[in-house]
Amino acid sequence: MSLKFSVGDLTIHRIIEQETTFLPALDMFPGLAPDALAEHRTWMKQAGALDDSDTLILAFQSYIVKTPHHTILIDSCIGNDKPRPNRPNWNMKTDDTYMRGLAAAGFSVGDIDYVMCTHLHVDHVGWNTRLENGRWVPTFPNARYVFDKTEFDYWTETNGKTEVPPFRDSVLPVVEAGKSEIVRNDFAIGDHARILPTPGHTPGHAAFTFGRGKDDAVFSGDLMHSPIQTLFPELSPKFDVDQAQAAKTRRSFLERYCGTDTLCCTAHFPSPSAGRIKRKGNGFVCEMA
């Protein structure tokens, strides 16, 4: 299983917190017809994306990108000590899997210069903070945390109406500590990291592209959850805030990178999770690295 990739002058590490069954495919994707699932069941299982009961297998992970100038963590996963009663595998977790993965890749929490969040869902912000003496504090003490402004404003408004626990325990403490950067679509870090708006899953969902002068790698976040969505870009999960917009964004993204050398690093595809986009019929495939 590959946990490290090199492309251009970048080194990319995967930090896996969980890789496990999630939801039945027909539940996750309301638009997926049973006969379509049956037709593609074999290759989905061969890809490690589907189990024998037609339940999707997803990875929950962070990526660390080492550029010539910075060490950047993308999406901070699930986290420990967080009350998540709707997800038993995530609720009040206390294991050391994530921190062991970080150490195995050769990093400490103090090594991270930026934490970049594709969006602010529960499984992408969890390790933004850790519990210390009963308080939530930034896990990565030397990092600036990057949040898209549209995304941050959306969750600020939502949390103002009904409390959103992941926003309260994993985002706001970072802001209150003065560690956040609320950014717009022109955001970049030097000549190596840029934001790519990819709305639909959430209003301010963003991918991040890396490379000097070109996109050597792109981190797609929840633009796609499962390989079947490359074959059928119109297939949106029930979690997408705007399913039609997400489908349009997904196809545009896949067209953009189809046939290029850009390494597409997905948030949730099963290991090795990263590959290159190729055309297949009216859809695409991500040929794994």
Rank of each mutant, 00 (worst) to 15 (best):
F5L: 12
S6C: 09
V7A: 09
D9R: 15
R14M: 09
I15F: 01
I15G: 03
I15T: 06
I16P: 04
E19H: 11
T20F: 01
T21Q: 11
L26C: 08
D27V: 13
F29E: 07
P30T: 06
L32W: 08
P34K: 05
D35C: 05
D35Y: 08
D35V: 14
D35R: 11
L37Y: 08
K45C: 05
Q46D: 15
A47T: 05
A47S: 12
A49S: 13
L50S: 11
L50T: 12
S53K: 15
S53Y: 11
I57N: 04
L58F: 14
F60W: 11
F60R: 08
Q61C: 13
V65W: 01
P68C: 10
P68H: 10
P68W: 10
P68D: 08
P68L: 08
H70L: 06
H70N: 14
S76D: 04
C77F: 06
N80P: 02
P85Y: 13
W90T: 06
K93V: 12
D95A: 04
T97V: 15
Y98V: 04
M99E: 15
G101C: 09
A103R: 12
A103K: 14
A103W: 01
A104Q: 14
A105H: 09
G106I: 09
S108H: 10
V109W: 01
G110W: 00
D111H: 09
D113Y: 00
Y114Q: 05
Y114P: 02
M116H: 04
M116F: 04
C117E: 10
H121A: 11
H121Y: 13
H121W: 12
V122A: 15
D123P: 02
H124V: 13
W127G: 04
N128D: 03
T129E: 09
T129G: 07
L131Q: 14
N133C: 04
G134C: 12
W136D: 09
V137P: 07
T139G: 07
P141M: 07
N142W: 00
V146F: 05
V146I: 15
K149M: 08
F152V: 04
Y154S: 12
N159K: 12
K161M: 13
E163V: 14
P166A: 10
S170P: 05
S170R: 13
L172G: 01
L172I: 14
A177G: 02
A177H: 08
G178M: 06
S180V: 02
E181Y: 01
E181W: 03
E181C: 03
N185V: 00
P197V: 03
T198M: 10
G200V: 03
H201G: 00
G204S: 03
A206D: 02
A207V: 00
F208C: 01
F208M: 09
T209M: 03
F210D: 02
G211F: 06
K214F: 09
A217W: 07
F219W: 04
G221E: 06
G221A: 13
P227N: 07
T230F: 15
L231S: 03
F232V: 11
P237A: 06
K238T: 05
Q243E: 14
Q243C: 05
A247F: 02
A247R: 07
S252G: 06
L254D: 08
G259W: 06
D261F: 02
L263G: 05
C264V: 15
H268A: 14
F269W: 15
G275V: 08
R276C: 05
R279C: 04
G281V: 10
N282T: 14
G283F: 09
F284Y: 15
V285P: 00
A289N: 10
